[in-house]
């Protein structure tokens, strides 16, 4: 019995000491994808503003959504998520309205970045990076692809050497686009058609890959991959023969945004962080470091032309990007997408 009592006491003490450690620290917590900002950016932010901050990492939008929905966002202050998820977090009332007075650097944004349809006027989110989804390929091993069908129905030489994104929205988008439908389609027969196309495409796919496709291009495991433009640049950096192209049918545009959780206890500091990211100087540093386009006009206009030449998709203008359709949350139709994707991934 004594043993049990002391055991219980120890457990409580340990718990208490840990929680003390975590509540005591008044730190701004920022969750982002691994490698999606310069590694020492938060350190620099701390030094320059005197605000204590730390970074949490999430591997996917889905992961951070699961955690934020279950925990009501407690503990997190700033989140980086893609645009459809901004819409959901807002509808679920988990993110705060932004106070633009605290973010004077919004003046650095392109005017178009204020008119994004998932959050007009950037009421609850600030765009961090944007771009398009397309094909990333080895120009030394194949001719330039022109159509989504080059990916979905590859010629014999490419069979088993292409990869596709596995995240449900982007996987379905490839199917919809090849058929000329909207990437936000809620029409059951269109969903069924896209599913059929993607099912037959599966036979010639090496793997579904959201994160290491560029490494597969570099090593030669794959010749063409379904990719986000910024991430394709990681491949180009290692092998200049790796190029990016948007298929002639068009594509979607993505926006990765910053939001502040409603439960944040450090909203002022969170605004200061967003403002910091949107400054011209930091904006330039981000583009040079992560090789993604940002909606920061002041920063984009001061990027070294040699950089733009080495990574041509960085030079894409806001109008070119905005020509593409933006992903929206699907509401109830999400169920149908998930089921279609399950069916595709489970088919032989």
């Amino acid at each position: 019995m004594k043993l049990l009592k002391s055991l219980g006491a120890t457990a409580l003490m340990l718990s208490a000491s840990f929680s003390a450690q975590t509540t005591w620290a008044d730190k701004l917590v920022i969750s982002n994808w691994d490698g999606y900002m310069p590694a020492d950016m938060v350190e620099r932010f701390k030094k320059e503003t005197g605000i204590d901050a730390e970074v949490a990492l999430h591997a996917t939008n889905e992961e951070i959504m699961g955690k934020v929905v279950a925990s009501k966002g407690k503990g997190y202050d700033v989140l980086f998520v893609s645009s459809p998820f901004v819409e959901v977090l807002n509808k679920l009332d988990l993110i705060a309205k932004l106070d633009h007075k605290l973010i004077p650097n919004t003046k650095n944004l392109y005017s178009q970045a204020n008119e994004l349809n998932y959050d007009k006027g950037n009421k609850v989110s600030m765009p961090y990076a944007w771009g398009t989804t397309g094909l990333c390929y080895r120009a030394d091993l194949m001719d330039e692809p022109t159509s989504w069908n080059d990916l979905l129905k590859p010629n014999d030489a490419l069979k088993g050497k292409v990869t596709m994104l596995s995240t449900d929205r982007w996987l379905m988008a490839a199917g919809f686009l090849s058929l000329g439908y909207s990437v936000n389609s809620t029409n059951p027969s269109e969903i069924a058609e896209a599913k059929q196309v993607l099912k037959s495409a599966k036979k010639s796919i090496l793997a579904y890959d959201d994160a290491t496709f560029y490494a597969k291009l570099v090593s030669g495991e794959a010749t063409m991959t379904h990719a986000w433009d910024g991430w394709c640049n990681y491949g180009t950096a290692e092998n200049p023969n790796i190029k990016y192209v948007i298929p002639k049918e068009g594509t979607d545009m993505y926006v990765d945004s910053m939001v502040i959780t409603k439960n944040s206890k450090m909203k002022k500091e969170a605004h200061a962080f967003i403002n910091y990211v949107l400054s011209k100087e930091i904006g330039v540093w981000i583009v040079n470091n992560v090789m993604y386009k940002t909606p920061n006009e002041a920063a984009m206009s001061s990027i070294d032309p040699a950089m733009m030449k080495a990574y041509p998709n960085l030079a894409m203008s806001p109008d070119e990007i905005l020509k593409q359709e933006q992903l929206r949350d699907l509401g109830k139709t999400q169920k149908a997408y998930t089921k279609a994707v399950t069916e595709i991934l489970a088919s032989n």
């Binding site: 929905v69 449900d168 793997a207 999400q334 169920k335 998930t338 399950t342």
Partner: peptide, 24 residues
């Protein structure tokens, strides 16, 4: 499996995270 195989574990994981369909 490179995402080419679905097992029950993946299915459940996807319902909770991708579909955000906790009930299912």
């Amino acid at each position: 499996g490179g995402g080419r195989l679905q097992m029950v574990g993946n299915l459940i994981y996807d319902q909770f995270l991708s579909a955000r369909d906790w009930p299912f």
